[in-house]
Design a protein around this nucleic acid. Sequence first.
DNA 1: GTAATCCTTGACGCCGAGGTCAAGGCAAGG
DNA 2: CCTTGCCTTGACCTCGGCGTCAAGGATTAC
Lengths: 147, 147
Amino acid sequence: MRIGELAERAGTTTRTLRYYESRGLLPARRAVNGYRTYDESDLRLLRQIRTLQDFGFDLEETRPFVECLRAGHPAGDSCPASLAVYRRKLGELDGLIGELQSVRAQVGAQLAQAEAARAGLAAEAEVPGGPEPRCELTPHKSTPHKN
Amino acid sequence: MRIGELAERAGTTTRTLRYYESRGLLPARRAVNGYRTYDESDLRLLRQIRTLQDFGFDLEETRPFVECLRAGHPAGDSCPASLAVYRRKLGELDGLIGELQSVRAQVGAQLAQAEAARAGLAAEAEVPGGPEPRCELTPHKSTPHKN
DNA sequence: GTAATCCTTGACGCCGAGGTCAAGGCAAGG
DNA sequence: CCTTGCCTTGACCTCGGCGTCAAGGATTAC
């Protein structure tokens, strides 16, 4: 199998395969004419890489899985080094998710507060005398704009 | 106030301020000698930008907030455009958090499965005859290695 | 023969948010 | 006068994972 076919079967591009080879991840045999030659096991390696990439692993993190497969193990995650990557990744994910949830909460609070402020101003504008003092906001400044 | 002082007071660098200016976010007046000159309101703008950046907003997303402040509003999020950015960001965050949780679950499952497989192999190796058939895994192939 | 597809290597582009020189101007203290 | 420390613009570097030419060789189809 040549590079174009492998790329198509893996749902990627030839550029990507050459890039992986340049990184030492997916070396290729060569035909007499210099063309890269691949077999089914290369397809398995490639699929392993792609799966992990889809999970957000970067290329270097896929290396233990690929080496594990090339060592003849039944799965890319049959080796301790791969499990270590899994665990590290879980930690990273948990940290990242936590951060994002914290940010989400803060942004949500900001939005709520800003919406409440706008609602307050709108109510004030509707009845120029100041309708019913809604909360503890000092209602004596009509609009804080500085036109 | 000159650029170095503003940078220091905002906890950032002069390079960053010049970058913001190049993006049209934080224009500066100039002294006769060509030095950039800032005042307290610029510090407020800058702090608004930095806060949002810390939340993961990219520079373009901070623009409505900055313009809102420059328009004389009391807060960067006093304007509808800013609220729209908040809402869009909340949606993005929710989507991202969901994806990450999905990935986390999948990676966790992969890890659990791989650990179980290794435990199975270890147990098999310990008692070569096959101890108690732990699950439905066909126990007749000693080790699937291809040495 | 030649056109159409493959393939090869090499090299530059992209994205965001700045970092890091380089070469030179301006102000103040000793 | 000279040094020191701030400032100026300009231009290239970083990182990851490729995309996108460019120029040319190999194979197949007609």
